[in-house]
């Protein structure tokens, strides 16, 4: 599935009510941000609460339900806070916000390390049913987001094992029966591909 079809799917599924919600959200968030720029705490708190839910849904639908999504949402909230002085009330709020969301989501995914905690979290299930985790988890489209799903199987496996399951490069390479160098190339290309898909994606 390419980026155009992803964008097309999201626009096709927008009903009239959704369009109305979209417009009213847009106006309300823009007004709340202008108020926040003036220092109104309550409006800012409301804005962050509302957008955090939208951002969480957005990330889950694109990348799947994973532990790193919550960290990513919080990073994005901090980024929105740091960038709030750049919001121009003459421009629309969503493009401003989603430019930050897309950028931080890819940054966050890129920074996911094969760290000990993640490994420990997943080791048990891998040990319990290695065969299932090799194929079942990777092929379960319900758990993956649609952007991850849009990757080719090679890239999807590489990114799922290293960035989401938290395996080390050596472990993931062994699991896929490829060299570590080849795995690094796949991960790098997968992130590049995800970046393009996210940039072309219509929230």
């Amino acid at each position: 599935m390419n980026a155009a079809s992803l964008a097309g799917r999201s626009s096709q599924t927008m009903t009239a009510a959704a369009v109305e919600d979209y417009t009213s959200d847009e106006r309300r968030w823009a007004a709340l941000m202008v108020s926040a720029q003036s220092g109104h705490e309550a409006d800012y708190c409301l804005l962050l609460t509302e957008v955090s839910k939208v951002i969480h849904q957005y990330l889950c639908s694109r990348f799947g339900h994973h532990d790193f999504i919550e960290d990513c949402v919080q990073e994005i909230l901090v980024a929105i806070h740091q960038a709030r002085h750049t919001y121009d009330s003459h421009r629309r709020f969503r493009p401003w916000m989603f430019a930050i969301v897309r950028n931080k989501a890819i940054d966050s995914l890129r920074r996911q390390r094969s760290h000990h905690n993640a490994l420990e979290r997943h080791r048990e299930e891998l040990m319990l049913d290695t065969e299932h985790s090799n194929s079942g988890h990777l092929e379960n489209t319900e758990l993956r987001g649609r952007l991850i799903d849009a990757l080719s199987p090679q890239y999807r496996e590489a990114i799922t094992l290293t960035k989401i399951n938290g395996l080390s490069t050596a472990e993931a390479a062994a699991q896929l029966s490829i060299s570590e160098g080849a795995l690094k190339v796949r991960v790098h290309r997968a992130i590049g591909r995800l970046k393009r898909l996210v940039q072309a994606d219509t929230p």
Binding site: C45, S52, Q74, H85, Y87
Partner: peptide, 26 residues
């Protein structure tokens, strides 16, 4: 909602300082 996230939002909102309006970038 996640309590960590609530705490973060509370921390970001607390003592919010006004910022200058966005500059005319062009």
């Amino acid at each position: 909602m996640n309590s960590d996230r609530d705490d973060l939002i509370g921390a970001l909102s607390a003592g919010l300082q006004p910022v200058k309006p966005a500059p005319r970038i062009d």
